[in-house]
């Protein structure tokens, strides 16, 4: 069924802090490791040791340079499925393989119904879906649906693999539909925003903007160390 649910009981999703992300790719590799044996397994790799290695990943970390008034800033930017409320990848699906769960809002692909037409990946502005050439079906982030409800795991591990792996706590998981959940409070306090709101997808995941510092970085002071003799120090001073 590719009609979207009118409302979802919960809106499970991620809040990604662009201020604290250090771009270590631990979320991406941890995602690959868990999901290679999870709900949508395998995440096929093509020519992993060849000239042009490629493969299916659910999480990709970009790095951007931003020219702020206070100077140039490097921002690491993890990109994955945003589990949109108004997911166009779901409504374009001709077979009903793509669906959004009414209970928690997670967007999933039923691999037994997918015909591999790729239209869902065309409809997604975020590049969240990656086609598995080996399996002939579309794959995407499952929000680790096989972890978050998994009673075989200790309770603290029942979060998406990317959240568990992040060494700086830049990724938070929770119910963004509940106004007083920790993630909703975080979004309110830090001015969390939607990616490409004009595309009308109503993404559930939110991004926290990098903090802007009031003071510009001072230019490095030229220190004269280990210059040897007093004569050389004097020459250095004269010539500077």
């Amino acid at each position: 069924m590719t009609m979207l649910p009118e409302t979802t009981g919960r809106k499970l999703g991620l809040v990604i802090d662009l201020d604290t992300c250090v771009g270590c790719h631990a979320c991406a590799t941890s995602c690959k490791e868990w999901n290679d044996a999870g709900h949508s397994a395998p995440l096929t790799d093509y020519q992993p040791y060849g000239a042009a290695p490629d493969g299916v990943w659910f999480n990709r970390v970009h790095t951007y340079e931003v020219q702020t008034p206070a100077g140039s800033k490097t921002v690491n930017f993890p990109r994955s499925c945003l589990h949109c409320d108004n997911a166009p990848c779901v409504t374009v699906c001709p077979t009903g393989a793509s669906f959004k769960r009414a209970a928690d809002g997670i967007v999933l692909v039923d691999a037994d119904k997918c015909i591999g037409c790729k239209l869902c990946s065309w409809a997604c502005p975020y590049g969240a879906r990656e086609y598995d050439e080996h399996d002939g079906v579309m794959k995407k982030c499952t929000l680790c649906v096989d972890r978050i409800y998994n009673e075989n795991l200790p309770e603290e591990s029942r979060v998406p693999a990317c959240v568990a792996a992040c060494p700086t706590g830049a990724r938070s998981f929770g119910d963004l539909g509940a106004p007083d959940s920790p993630v909703s409070r975080l979004v309110r306090e830090r001015g969390g925003y939607d990616l490409l709101p004009e595309q009308g997808c109503a993404p559930v995941n939110k991004y926290l903007p990098p903090r802007t510092s009031a003071a510009a970085a001072r230019p490095l002071e030229r220190k004269v160390d280990n210059m040897g003799s007093a004569l050389l120090r004097w020459l250095d001073k004269v010539l500077t």
Binding site: L18, H62, Y64, V66, Q67, T68, P69, K73, V75, F77, P125, Y193, D194, L195, L196, Y207, P209, P210, T212
Partner: peptide, 8 residues
């Protein structure tokens, strides 16, 4: 796309 144009 990234929403970072708010910074520069």
């Amino acid at each position: 796309a990234t929403g970072l144009d708010r910074l520069g």
